[in-house]
Simulated scan of single mutants.
Amino acid sequence: MAKITYVDNDGTERVVEATNGESVMEAAVKNGIPGIDADCGGACACATCHVYVDKAFMDKVGEQQEMEKSMLDFAENVQENSRLSCQITVSDALDGLRVTTPESQH
């Protein structure tokens, strides 16, 4: 289990206990986190689960794969710490992860 903090663009924080093996997106959807729509259900076929990963966790979440990079082309305001939350798998190493949803998704 890992505690993940989802931060809205206005600064509102929601802490969720996520199960190892699920994606950061799945944990968000199960807990009603606003700003993560996950229209494709986690198939990496849209960009509605776009988040900004706290820079302290960039090494721990891993590298973007080519498909994710392609989908991020459809997201607004992409930054170097942009990721699709469906492509980040929860593990103990991610305990304390903070992700922020872009303003465009609210």
Results as ranks from 00 to 15, higher is better:
20 N>V: 14
18 A>K: 05
96 G>M: 06
38 A>E: 03
85 S>M: 10
39 D>Y: 01
72 L>S: 08
98 R>N: 10
89 T>A: 10
48 T>Y: 01
24 V>M: 07
23 S>K: 04
85 S>R: 06
83 R>E: 07
34 P>W: 07
93 A>T: 11
42 G>H: 02
83 R>I: 09
64 Q>D: 00
99 V>S: 03
64 Q>M: 13
49 C>L: 02
91 S>L: 09
52 Y>P: 03
55 K>A: 12
73 D>L: 15
67 M>P: 00
18 A>D: 06
99 V>H: 01
104 S>V: 08
57 F>R: 02
42 G>P: 02
104 S>F: 09
95 D>N: 15
7 V>L: 11
5 T>P: 01
8 D>H: 00
32 G>V: 08
71 M>C: 10
35 G>F: 03
7 V>A: 04
22 E>Q: 15
74 F>E: 11
32 G>W: 07
60 K>N: 10
68 E>R: 04
41 G>R: 05
83 R>S: 09
78 V>R: 00
80 E>I: 12
84 L>F: 04
1 M>E: 05
40 C>T: 13
51 V>Q: 07
99 V>F: 09
5 T>H: 05
54 D>F: 09
78 V>Q: 01
39 D>H: 00
22 E>H: 02
74 F>C: 11
97 L>H: 04
14 R>E: 05
31 N>E: 05
23 S>D: 06
89 T>M: 13
61 V>L: 11
12 T>N: 13
55 K>S: 14
94 L>D: 04
94 L>N: 05
100 T>W: 04
50 H>I: 12
76 E>C: 06
26 E>Q: 14
57 F>Y: 15
30 K>T: 04
41 G>Q: 03
48 T>A: 04
4 I>T: 05
20 N>M: 06
69 K>A: 06
58 M>T: 13
69 K>C: 10
63 E>S: 13
46 C>E: 03
96 G>V: 08
3 K>V: 14
87 Q>P: 04
8 D>S: 15
72 L>G: 05
71 M>W: 06
73 D>V: 12
10 D>Q: 12
67 M>Q: 13
77 N>P: 01
76 E>H: 06
92 D>N: 15
3 K>H: 14
29 V>A: 05
61 V>P: 01
103 E>R: 10
82 S>H: 07
32 G>R: 08
64 Q>G: 00
24 V>P: 01
39 D>R: 00
91 S>I: 12
35 G>A: 09
22 E>T: 12
101 T>Y: 03
48 T>G: 11
22 E>N: 04
15 V>Q: 12
30 K>E: 14
16 V>G: 10
49 C>D: 15
89 T>W: 04
97 L>G: 05
23 S>G: 08
49 C>M: 06
71 M>Q: 12
23 S>F: 03
58 M>R: 08
55 K>F: 06
23 S>L: 08
64 Q>R: 15
9 N>P: 02
8 D>G: 05
86 C>P: 08
5 T>D: 02
30 K>I: 02
86 C>G: 01
15 V>W: 02
92 D>A: 15
76 E>L: 14
57 F>D: 05
